[in-house]
Design a protein around this nucleic acid. Sequence first.
RNA 1: GGCCGUCUUCUGAAUG
Length: 318
Amino acid sequence: VITFNTLINGLCLEGKIHQALRFFEQLVGRGGGFQPDIQTYNTIVNGICKIGETTQALRYLKIMEKRGCLPNVVTYNTIIDSLCKHMRVPEALHLFRKMTVKAISPDAVTYNSLIGGLCNSGQLKQAVLLSKEMVKDGIMPDVVTYNILVDALCKEGQAAEAQAVVEETMAQSGVQPNIVTYNSLIHGYSMRGQMDEATEVFSIMSSKGVMPDVFSYSSLINGYCETKRIDEAKRLFDEMSHNGILPDTITYTTLIKGYCQIGSIQAAKEIFKRMRDCGCHSNIMTYSTLLDGLCKHGLLDEAFSLFGSMLKEGVEAN
RNA sequence: GGCCGUCUUCUGAAUG
């Protein structure tokens, strides 16, 4: 069973959900005689959710019951999270109540998904309320819970408040911030152009033994680009490689945009070239960033020629 | 008795 689960999950991870489903049906169908276990079903349900067919995933709850494999907390969590990610929070809350009725206790993952869903639909207040409910329910908020709330505050432009949550509330609860926590703060400050504060968080994390990663650097670089301090951005870009952290597609795209914004199209093109040389793939965002830069500076011929290479590379226009 | 292999939640980039 584990072998098959691993195979099915492998297909799902590669985005080959339909292939995974076919494989699954073959195994279960006549002749297959394979008895899927709860994890097999959960993997399938997750695959279905990831292609946006959450409604079909909901049907699987019934199918599983009929086949004598009762959905567990992971099954519910998977679907609840998918509903939340597709802005169907009311339905998620409904399913949340339903699982309790079926005597399946929600866990931290359940609450975290719902809290995240509320945050993403602009209901931060409700999200905080739910995190208090969670405590009443005997489940302590974990680092993910805090990360969701911290990130939501940051995205609302309240990075300082978010940092206070980290330094006060989290500290009091004995929950250690992790790299995601720090990265959210760095991003929060960077997006407001508060680069001193962002840099401060960057040093705090290092001093606590949480080493900055490609997310940390990309956010900082983005902040410096937005504030037109391209030299600082470039310095960090060089520094990260030195520290053994490879810039990825997003990092390159960020820097390309930075150069475009200050009118250094030539430099932007050089970074784009360097990116290829380093074997880093450009995607639609990279191309549209550079295309935008070229167009805004009247270099339409070059833009069209770049567009042509993009199609040739198999990157689809949107 | 312990450990290892399969499922769910959090962070970065483009145009308008």
